[in-house]
Design a binder for these strands. Structure first.
Length: 476
RNA sequence: GGCGAGUUGGCGGAGUGGUGACGCAGCGGAUUGCAAAUCCGUGUACACGAGUUCGAUUCUCGUACUCGCCUCCA
């Protein structure tokens, strides 16, 4: 068995992944702050680490892998939204979590084994902060508790390649007067009566952002675990601060052994931002008619360590490729039942090459190439299993519908009457050698964005992505 | 200002110290009543300058440019 190799941000090297305990492989990924729909940038780490999760389950066994992804449900952005809408925080976070799971599910992302909410781990956070104070790594000041980076100076900044002194030199942080060092960060802060808060040894207040991951990972996984993932933007300060808190509390070599960061996503060559107006959610794309599988395919086609550009062109190409594969499998009668039979009889395995290339630091692009190779062989069951493994087919019963991928608009309209009409006109034309009528009919069908295939065997009408049924009116 | 990443053919995008991945588009052909689809064929790509080497797109150093993070947005 080939070993899994992963690039570790901590060591800046790609190395063989050796779990602390192969019977209990643990992966923690930073999840969303739940105040709004997930945008397409949020979805990239979800797909990346979902793919890794699938690979780990494949290699170590599903029951030997635990994946945790948190929900940050205490945050000033949430407070702001609550104040603006007059709704309760819990109402907002519950709704947003529901959206998130739906949208990520549409992308074929499996739900993690653990989905801790920050607000349910406040005691663990307080306990950890107290320990840090006792150990001299934190101090209370004016209702806040801050992490003292000077007490961890020789380690702080290692993950992101910075030093405390350099950072202070170029810092653009607001320096609160109660900070001993400008880089000290908040672990606990006071709340007013109208803000969410909990009683603590430092008064009524709420946690800072970073402490939740430290406390929840410790609670769920213990002091050491295997993989910690997230977007590159979180590397500093979030992950650096998590490390500082956890390692200062529990020991230098504790916490995550391997750190993985996915690069950022852009849209049509530009940074996605609200001000540029190119900011959109996964739900927006789904509503536009892109299947979740198409979105996932686009994500998988760029290696996670490289910036990815979301373009409409790529999505269209992905759609065309998937449609070919779906059609092939549809003609082979793959359904949930037949797939289940294959699984029951042990005939359901992703192709070895697909797994191999994923083991090489998650080379998802190459995995798609391997699938493409399979699609032109007779290894159809392996093609099918590979697609499911990569999260590109999540419901075999919808394969027929997916195969027509007019994605959004196509309603599964029956075109057989039109096919018959064309077939008849064609057989007449064959003998009269007058093809004017056939050509006219064909042109009209094509105008409605239907692919018209005529061969000796007959006529085949396939609606394309932008199929417009209205243009067919009056043809019959 | 600090830190980091990238620069591969028309486009996207892997990969490798030594025979031009792969996809899309294009071009030529087969096929077709014409098309579409399909099949076959087709491309002297690795930012620039030095260095290491028998040999570098691949390693090292430098230069240029692009992008990202450090700031509410992953």
């Amino acid at each position: 068995m080939t070993e899994i190799k992963l690039y570790n941000t901590k060591t800046r090297k790609k190395g063989v992944f050796t779990p602390l305990d192969a019977n209990n492989v643990r992966m923690y990924v930073c999840g969303p702050t739940v105040y709004d729909r997930a945008h397409i940038g949020n979805a990239r780490p979800v797909v990346v680490f979902d793919t890794l999760y699938r690979l780990l389950r494949h290699v170590y066994g599903a029951e030997h892998v635990t994946y945790a992804r948190n929900f940050t449900d205490v945050d000033d952005k949430i407070n702001t939204k609550a104040a603006e809408t007059g709704r309760s925080i819990r109402d907002i976070t519950d709704e947003t979590i529901g959206w998130y799971l739906d949208d990520m599910g549409a992308l074929g992302a499996m739900e993690p084994d653990e989905a801790p909410r920050a607000t349910e781990y406040i005691p663990q956070m307080i306990a950890m902060i107290e320990e840090l104070i006792l150990k001299g790594h934190a101090y209370a000041a004016e209702g806040h508790v801050l992490f003292a980076v000077d007490s961890w100076k020789e380690h702080y900044g290692k993950l992101s390649g910075r030093s405390v002194d350099d950072m202070i030199a170029g810092a653009r942080v607001e320096v609160a007067p109660y900070k001993r060092n400008p880089m000290d960060f908040v672990m606990w802060k006071p709340s007013t009566d109208d803000q969410p808060g909990w009683e603590s040894p430092w008064g009524y207040g709420r946690p800072g952002w970073h402490i939740e991951c430290s406390a929840m990972a410790r609670e769920l996984f213990g002091e050491r675990f295997d993989i910690h993932g997230g977007g590159l933007d979180l590397q500093f300060p979030h992950h650096e601060n998590e490390i500082a808190q956890s390692c200062a509390c529990c020991g230098e070599d504790t916490f995550a052994q391997v750190w993985m960061h996915n690069e950022m996503l852009q849209v049509e060559g530009k940074k996605m931002s609200k001000s540029l107006g190119n900011f959109f959610s996964v739900r927006d794309l789904l509503d536009q008619g892109y299947a979740g599988e198409v979105i996932r395919f686009v994500y998988l086609s760029t290696h996670y360590s490289k910036p990815m550009d979301w373009t409409d062109k790529k999505a269209k190409e992905a759609e065309a490729t998937l449609r070919d594969w779906y059609r092939l499998l549809h003609t082979m009668n793959y359904t949930n039942d037949t797939v289940q039979t294959l699984k029951d009889t042990g005939q359901w395995k992703p192709h070895e090459r697909v797994v191999e290339v994923l083991k090489n630091d998650l080379n998802t692009h190459q995995a798609l190439v391997e699938v493409r190779v399979l699609s032109s062989t007779d290894l159809i069951p392996e093609l099918a299993a590979s697609l499911e493994f990569l999260g590109l087919v999540n419901d075999w019963d919808s394969l027929g519908q997916m195969a027509s991928v007019g994605l959004g608009e196509y309603s599964g309209m029956d075109l057989s009457a039109f096919a018959e009409l064309l077939t008849d006109a064609r057989s007449v034309a064959m003998s009269t050698k007058n093809f004017a009528k056939v050509d006219e009919l064909k042109a009209k069908l094509q105008a409605a964005n239907i692919e018209v295939r005529m061969s000796k065997d007959g006529v085949e009408l396939i609606p394309k992505a932008d199929f417009d049924p209205e243009k067919l009116e009056g043809l019959l």
